[in-house]
Design a protein around this nucleic acid. Sequence first.
DNA 1: ACTACATATGCACAATTGTTCATATGTTCA
DNA 2: TGAACATATGAACAATTGTGCATATGTAGT
Lengths: 122, 122
Amino acid sequence: MSQNEPNIEICETTVIHQNTVEKVQKASMAEETLLELAGFFKVIGDPTRIKILTALFVSEMCVCDIAAALSMSQSAISHQLRVLKQAKLVKFRRDGKVVYYSLDDDHVEAILRQGLEHIKEN
Amino acid sequence: MSQNEPNIEICETTVIHQNTVEKVQKASMAEETLLELAGFFKVIGDPTRIKILTALFVSEMCVCDIAAALSMSQSAISHQLRVLKQAKLVKFRRDGKVVYYSLDDDHVEAILRQGLEHIKEN
DNA sequence: ACTACATATGCACAATTGTTCATATGTTCA
DNA sequence: TGAACATATGAACAATTGTGCATATGTAGT
């Protein structure tokens, strides 16, 4: 900031603090990691999926019970469980006709709690 | 689970473990809190916004520097900064023509770090 | 007042997403 | 094998979202 940093044109954007820009670019994550990270938060950034996850904090549950507890269709729940499964947030076991889902990640509860801290501070 | 729980029809969904369903419903968050929480994670569930936030870990930055650092248009960055501002994740100060943005939340860095833990475990 | 520049914003549009509906799959029991 | 039931899945659709484009706003210097 105290250095002599001339304005330079790069693709129509004016760089004011080239020093900072370079530091940021060097500190940036690998694109793949970034997309995974964003994808993870996108998964828990949906009311239905948060409801499912917090329901599973209480107990492992089968699909129709989750549907009943959330007053939603079996299909909707099933679709969302697939998303959560792909994100490795839930796992399942089959017992006859019934499939029981449960949490597959220790971080999720902590992360949701920290999210709550944020919105409480408003 | 060990109790006698008959199947009951509620709106086309079969309840198998009524006990569990009731426990979950009682433990459920207020709808408003839930929506806020989901909204918060949705905000950090986007690659561009994560890039902006991690850039601000390094230093406060003006809009055009962020645009240059991320190789994106000023408009795109400005739109996303508005989202981050509304979510109280960034704050800004004006210095002449230039507006400097910086982080406005302590939790974000911790939450992003925990998100990274999750995806590393795969 | 006028120009230059940094940033913000409204509109439009393509892309993504969550749910419903219909149906397929898989399992149990008779 | 066939009926009943739990779950999964594909297609369709409305709603939401991220970005580009054009332009407005705000500030500084002349």
